[in-house]
C-alpha cells in the first residue's frame, strides 16, 4: 500500500495507528502482569517504619539519588566493596525506587549499620570533617529542622493504597511508633512487635529533646540493606 494512500484515508490511517499503538502497549504492559515472578522470595523484608519513611522523604527531597545509587550490581568489585548484590525484593516497598544511576558518591544500598549515628551527624554537618576528600555538600540544616510528622498516619495509608502492606494497627499507631524509634528511653515493645527486631532504635542526632529531620534520615540510612536474611537466601542460578 502506498504511503500517500494511507495518509489520505483517515479510516485506514486510524486503523493502522491503532494496530501500532496496541503492539507497543502490549510489549510494555503485558510483562507487568508477570512482574511478581521476578521478585525473589526472601525472609525479613518489612515495610518502612514511620520514622524511616519520613527519612526516605527527606532523602528524596534533598535529591540524594542525584549522586548516590542504591543498586549493587552483580559484579565482583561491587560485591566485595558493598556486599551482596541488590535483590528486586529489597525495593518491593519502594514507591518510587531509589536505584539511581549517578554514582558520584558511594552506593548506599547496604549502608545500614556501617557507620555510627554519631558519624552520620558529623558527616551531614560537614562531610569533610570525617572524609577529607569528599565532594558532598554539607546538610547542616537537617539537625536544625524539627521533623513535621503530623501527617504520618495519612502518609502510611497512602503507601498502603499503592500496595505496601501496612496494617490498620500500624497506621493507627504510626505517630507513637515514630516517637518510640527516635526518643531515647521510650517503650519500644509495640514498635518492635510491629516492625521486628532489626528496627534501629537510637537518638540518631544526639538531641534527645526533639525529633529532627536528621533523626529520620539517619534512621532510614541505618536500616538500608539490613533487612534481608541472606543466610536463608538461595541465589537463583539463572
Amino acid at each position: 500500500m502506498n504511503h500517500a494512500t494511507i495518509e489520505k484515508n483517515i479510516s485506514i490511517m486510524s486503523l493502522l495507528t491503532l494496530v501500532m499503538v496496541s503492539i507497543g502497549g502490549l510489549v510494555e504492559i503485558v510483562p507487568l502482569f508477570f512482574i511478581d515472578s521476578t521478585i525473589e522470595t526472601v525472609q525479613g523484608m518489612r515495610p518502612y517504619t514511620p520514622l524511616e519513611l519520613k527519612g526516605r522523604d527527606v532523602y528524596i527531597r534533598e535529591g540524594c539519588y542525584n549522586c548516590h545509587s542504591q543498586m549493587i550490581r552483580p559484579f565482583r568489585d561491587e560485591k566485595e566493596r558493598y556486599g551482596h548484590y541488590s535483590l528486586a525484593a529489597e525495593s518491593m516497598y519502594d514507591h518510587p525506587f531509589q536505584w539511581g544511576s549517578k554514582r558520584t558518591g558511594p552506593d548506599l544500598a547496604r549502608v545500614g549499620g556501617k557507620y555510627s549515628s554519631l558519624w552520620h551527624r558529623e558527616h551531614m554537618r560537614n562531610p569533610r570533617a570525617v572524609v577529607p576528600e569528599s565532594v558532598m555538600p554539607s546538610y547542616s540544616w537537617l539537625e536544625k529542622n524539627v521533623l513535621d510528622y503530623n501527617d504520618i498516619s495519612a502518609r502510611l495509608s497512602a503507601m498502603k493504597k499503592i500496595g505496601v502492606p501496612y496494617t490498620t494497627e500500624m497506621i493507627t499507631h504510626a505517630k507513637a511508633d515514630l516517637e518510640a524509634q527516635a526518643i531515647p528511653g521510650q517503650n519500644t515493645t509495640a514498635l518492635i512487635s510491629r516492625y521486628g527486631k532489626k528496627v534501629p532504635v537510637d537518638d540518631f542526632d544526639a538531641k534527645p529533646e526533639q525529633i529532627t529531620e536528621l533523626d529520620a534520615l539517619t534512621a532510614y540510612l541505618q536500616m538500608l540493606g539490613t533487612l534481608v536474611d541472606f543466610s536463608s537466601y538461595q541465589a537463583r542460578s539463572r
Partner: peptide, 13 residues
C-alpha cells in the same frame, strides 16, 4: 577510614 581517617590518622571531627 571514614571514621578513623585514611591510614588511621583520625578525622577533623
Amino acid at each position: 577510614a571514614p571514621c578513623h581517617g585514611t591510614g588511621g590518622v583520625g578525622a577533623q571531627a
